[in-house]
Each structure stands twice: as C-alpha cells, then as structure tokens.
C-alpha cells in the first residue's frame, strides 16, 4: 500500500487499512469524495495565525493525577470469558492464529 497522491493527499484505501476496516469499492468512492470535501472545509484553519499559541490537549491544565499503588479487586474470570466471542477451556480468550511476522512486542 502506498499513499496515492489524490485530492488532499487522501487515500481512503490506505487509511481504511490502517483503521482495519474493509470497505466496498462504492464506499471507498463515496468516502473519497465526502471526506475530501470535509478536509477541504477544515483547511479553513490554515488561515488562523497560531504562532506562539500552545495546543490544548485537555480542557483544564491539571497535572499529576496519580493513584497509590494499592490493589483493587479484579473481575471474576467467568464474567470476562462470558463476554468473549470465543474461548479456550475456562481460562483464555481464543483468537485466530497470530502469525510470527505480525508479532509486535511492546
């Protein structure tokens, strides 16, 4: 996959791949247009002079919201496995095979 050069540099197929969503060809065509329009609109922000302005990541600048290192109860395993679409025995969540070349680590 490479980023094709299109309007707004938007390649819906590449982005949908990043977001792990299969899209039909029609949806891709529809989004390619609609989202390019939206991006065209939000480019309005480029006219704003933001030199020297700090970005707002949080509505209110609070720091050091910390928790003491004290254990709290965990969930019962039955409740966790009951929500899982597939399980292995009574202890693990089952997923399609993870291939070595998909391995991530941390």
């Amino acid at each position: 996959m490479s980023k094709e050069s299109t309007d707004q540099g938007l390649d819906v197929r590449y982005i949908a791949d990043l977001a792990r969503i299969d899209l039909s060809d029609e949806e891709i065509a529809q989004f390619q247009k609609e989202i390019a329009d939206i991006i065209g609109y939000v480019k309005l922000l480029q006219e704003v002079d933001v030199a020297g302005i700090d970005p707002t990541a949080h509505a209110f600048p609070v720091v050091n919201v910390l928790r003491e290192d004290i254990p709290r109860p965990s969930l019962p395993r039955e409740a966790v496995l009951a929500n899982a679409p597939a399980t292995i025995g009574d202890d693990s969540i089952r997923v399609p095979a993870i291939l070595p070349d998909e391995e991530e680590g941390a």
Binding site: D69, I70, P71, S74, R77, V80, L81, I93
Partner: peptide, 28 residues
C-alpha cells in the same frame, strides 16, 4: 523493555502478577 515491579498495574488496580492463573488479574 523492562517490567517494573509494583504491586498493581500501571493504569489500574489489578495485581501486577503476570504469571498467576490466566485472566484473573484483569478488570475493565
């Protein structure tokens, strides 16, 4: 990567016990 020895996990109060019975130290 080095795991840090604490009593609880980094963002929740579950016990930091990776080797315990599977899926017992988990929360929302």
């Amino acid at each position: 990567h080095v795991q840090v020895r604490t009593r609880t996990k980094v963002f929740c109060g579950c016990s930091n016990g990776a080797g315990d019975e599977p899926n017992t130290n988990v929360c929302p």
